[in-house]
Computed example of a mutant assay.
Amino acid sequence: MTSLDEARAHLAKAREFLEAAELTNDLQLFNAAASNAVTSGINSKDAICPALTGRTEKSDNHAEAVAELKGSGSAGRDSSSTLSRLLKLKSKSQYQAGSVSASEATKSVGWAGRLLDSAQAVTPS
């Protein structure tokens, strides 16, 4: 698989998870919405990096993912703070006993949408 094929595959997943985030947010399933938004955002990062640099790292370390995005060029640098905000909701939406609020879920869907827009802008069709 070429880096462009990889970017396109992650872009498709980012779209799918964003749609799931929007639907679950509409159903007031806020943890699911935020979790899907986080997954969408990670896939957008995994589309942006190979589209711009020819590769992406797979790491469970959130700081490394943000740093990789930041180092991938101006589009990545501009998106890195959005990914950082989004990743801060990963544990709360997926692992912790406390729940994501309606406001946090709505914000996470918006952040994931911005990351997807950035990924689409740098990934050739």
Rank of each mutant, 00 (worst) to 15 (best):
V109R: 00
G73F: 03
T82I: 15
V100F: 00
H62V: 02
F17Q: 04
K70I: 07
S3E: 03
A65E: 10
K92C: 13
S72F: 04
A9Y: 09
H62G: 01
S99K: 13
S103F: 10
T53L: 08
Q28R: 09
A20Y: 10
A102Q: 14
N25R: 07
S74A: 15
G76I: 05
R85Q: 12
Y95L: 03
L11S: 00
A9T: 13
S40R: 00
K88D: 15
A97E: 11
S103W: 10
L18C: 03
P124M: 02
A20E: 09
S59Y: 05
K58I: 13
K13Y: 13
S59C: 11
S35Q: 06
L4M: 11
V100N: 00
T24V: 06
S81P: 06
A7R: 01
A32P: 08
D78E: 14
R77W: 09
T53F: 04
A14S: 05
E16R: 04
E6D: 12
I42P: 04
A65T: 12
R77E: 14
F30Q: 02
G98C: 15
G54E: 05
V38Y: 01
A9D: 12
K88A: 14
R114I: 00
A119I: 00
R55D: 11
A7N: 02
V66E: 04
S91E: 13
R8K: 15
G110R: 03
A32R: 02
T24W: 01
A33I: 01
S99E: 15
S108C: 03
S35G: 09
E16S: 02
L18T: 01
G41L: 10
L23G: 05
L89S: 05
A51R: 01
N43T: 14
H62S: 01
T24C: 09
E68A: 07
R55T: 10
G76L: 04
N31P: 00
D60Q: 14
V122C: 11
D60R: 15
C49M: 06
L86P: 02
A12N: 12
T123Y: 02
S101M: 08
E68S: 02
S3Q: 03
G73P: 03
Q96H: 11
S118F: 06
A75R: 10
L52C: 05
R15K: 08
A12K: 13
S3F: 08
G73W: 04
L89I: 10
A37Q: 02
A67R: 03
S93H: 03
G73T: 05
V100Y: 01
E68C: 05
A119L: 00
L29G: 01
G98Y: 14
L116A: 01
E19N: 08
F30W: 07
T56W: 00
S40C: 03
D60G: 15
A121S: 08
A32M: 10
E19K: 05
K70D: 07
V109Y: 00
N31L: 05
L69Y: 01
P50C: 03
T53I: 08
D117W: 11
H10C: 06
A20M: 12
A112F: 00
E104N: 07
K90F: 11
Q94H: 11
A9E: 11
R55A: 10
K70G: 06
S59A: 10
S118I: 08
R15T: 05
L27C: 13
W111M: 06
S108D: 03
Y95V: 02
F17K: 04
K92F: 12
V100C: 01
E68D: 09
L87K: 14
E57P: 13
S81T: 12
A32K: 07
K58M: 11
N61S: 09
G113Y: 00
G76C: 07
